[in-house]
């Protein structure tokens, strides 16, 4: 969601998180330390041992505020418009293979999975990048699915966020 890498959010019910023991010991997560016993800091500090990723946290907050300012309804509308624009044109190109883009159903998300026949996906990604189009090329954490589809090589995904000028 546009934040720097190396940061994320754990979202959980307070009572359950409170009952859980810390998974990592370190600075700033203790309350009182005795010889044989320790009590831990309140949530969320209990789970935040050691040096904090301060830059990441500040960046994530800025990203959340940025997306909130645009509004998720508007983001969804822009993504839908981009899919409505891109999909019919991709369907017209004989050298493009689409996956999960059944013409009888609407795309549920702003992601289009496709393959350019006879060209390695990483070459496609590099060439598209040079024209300002960002795609993700790779295994997409789904090597078994690629093998099932008869694709030995990684494919492209077109997440339509880069073109969404808000």
């Amino acid at each position: 969601m546009l934040s720097p890498m190396g940061i994320g959010v754990l979202y959980g019910k307070y009572d359950i998180l409170d009952a859980m023991p810390p998974f990592l010991m370190g600075g700033d997560m203790i309350e009182y330390v005795q010889e044989q016993d320790t009590t831990f800091a309140e949530l969320p500090a209990k789970f935040e041992a050691g040096t904090q990723n301060v830059g990441g946290a500040a960046g994530l907050q800025a990203a959340i505020e940025y997306l909130g300012k645009i509004g998720f309804d508007r983001i969804e509308a822009i993504e839908k418009a981009l899919v409505d624009y891109a999909l019919p044109q991709l369907r017209e190109l004989p050298y493009i293979e689409l996956y999960g883009c059944d013409s009888t159903r609407d795309n549920k998300t702003g992601i289009i999975a496709f393959n350019v026949k006879d060209v390695h996906p990483h070459d496609v990604a590099t060439i598209l990048d040079s024209t300002g189009v960002a795609v993700r090329a790779g295994h997409h954490c789904a090597q078994p699915l690629h093998r099932y589809l008869g694709l030995e090589l990684p494919r492209e995904l077109l997440p339509l966020q880069h073109e969404g000028r808000c």
Binding site: V119, H120, P121, H122, D123, E152, L153
Partner: peptide
């Protein structure tokens, strides 16, 4: 010589 698959580069 070589055998294999991969990108253009």
């Amino acid at each position: 010589a070589f055998e294999g698959v991969g990108c253009a580069i």
